[in-house]
Write a protein that binds this DNA or RNA. Structure first.
Lengths: 198, 198
DNA sequence: GGGTTAGTACAACGTTCGTTGTACTTTGAG
DNA sequence: CTCAAAGTACAACGAACGTTGTACTAACCC
């Protein structure tokens, strides 16, 4: 087994366990077992549980952000019909890459645990993840506005509104029948472009 | 000290501690101290930690939902100018009633912990809280649509979109400089009504 | 091939926590 | 006032957990 891969193994196992159980519930022994690693190497790499957690959220955020930036790049550069292109973008955006499900569960853990995470770590995490993606979308929207495709004052806020509208949000991470993705995105994009005024 | 108030004391203390620390971190002894109650009476009332948690989220959800339903009632019945009335509603909606800050922190805990809470409890919580409020807003929106004030196919989805747009959402529960509430609501309502199409 | 480096297995520690039992005290209704 | 119901103080338990030290083994570089 290659030595340098152990670190990645630990990060992957810790992501799984932290995302599922949260910081407090997650036990070092379970993480080590999930990663196929002894607890001692885990401590040798990351110092303690808090250090491991911060490394995990940072790594997961940058990895997912990179994937999302690629989707922005590939879907929001050449525009033929804005509405259908936004729908295609939204669907690509929200299509659940299976490995990323754990990331979103981890995001919920971070949201809940924010008061127990050092501020530096939260800031770095936001910068590497959500804020970077939000800025990328905002840049594209600003370009669309310059071309007269959109009418907006604050591109960052517009990007936030777009992300919210296609998120569908509520409690869908529970089992149950998941709402139709295409429906959620199509109606979200429609609301984003045209609003509900009568 | 009135006997029947002990139960409410426990619920209030448990809300504070669960909201701040999360289920796993929260300890029974700390909750009992916060409530000014012995651990034994806590167990006598709620059985065990899980039972207490479910009672707390249910009570908090119904209490906040009642307050929100009152705001819907008082702001969305008589409409003079839809946009300004929606702004006023959004501001009243989002104005942080101080006691309710703990509730929203608890919501984040529930979102993170959903996999470790029995499905019945989650369902009951959703029904007593978010879904009831969402339906109330949807009913008002449907009435507005009947009057030609709004143009929509699915009132429930429109209510969700409205709630998302005025939520401002991102990580504002952290300290730092909180974004201007009036700004967030005004722009959110504008996007909700008119969209961003150029 | 030898030696440094990284990884493992394992025991041990101190602490924290949920939970229960028990004997005692307070409270409130009749 | 009386007495049953509710609350308290306190000790005790078993289990789980984070963390460290240590002696041993496997992997890699020259």
């Amino acid at each position: 087994m290659a030595r340098s891969s152990k670190r990645q193994d630990v990060l992957a196992g810790a992501l799984t366990v932290f995302a599922r159980d949260g910081y407090a519930r997650a036990s070092i022994d379970v993480i080590a077992a999930e990663a196929g690693v002894s607890t001692r190497t885990l401590y040798n790499h990351f110092g303690d549980k808090a250090g491991l957690f911060q490394a995990v959220i940072q790594e997961s955020a940058t990895r997912v952000a990179a994937a999302q930036l690629a989707i922005v790049e590939s879907h929001l550069t050449e525009i033929t019909d804005l509405e259908s292109d936004l729908v295609a973008f939204g669907i690509a955006w929200r299509t659940p890459i299976p490995d990323f499900a754990e990331h979103w569960a981890l995001v919920r853990q971070v949201n809940a645990e924010a008061g127990h995470i050092p501020e530096d770590a939260i800031d770095a995490w936001q910068e590497a993840g959500p804020l970077a993606v939000q800025r990328a979308i905002a840049d594209r929207f600003a370009a669309f506005a310059a071309d007269g495709l959109l009418r907006l004052d604050d591109p960052v806020r517009a990007a936030l509104h777009f992300a919210l509208l296609i998120s569908g949000s509520n409690l869908s991470y529970r089992g149950g029948p998941k709402p139709d993705l295409a429906d959620t995105v199509t109606t979200g994009v429609h609301a984003f472009l045209h609003g509900y005024a009568g």
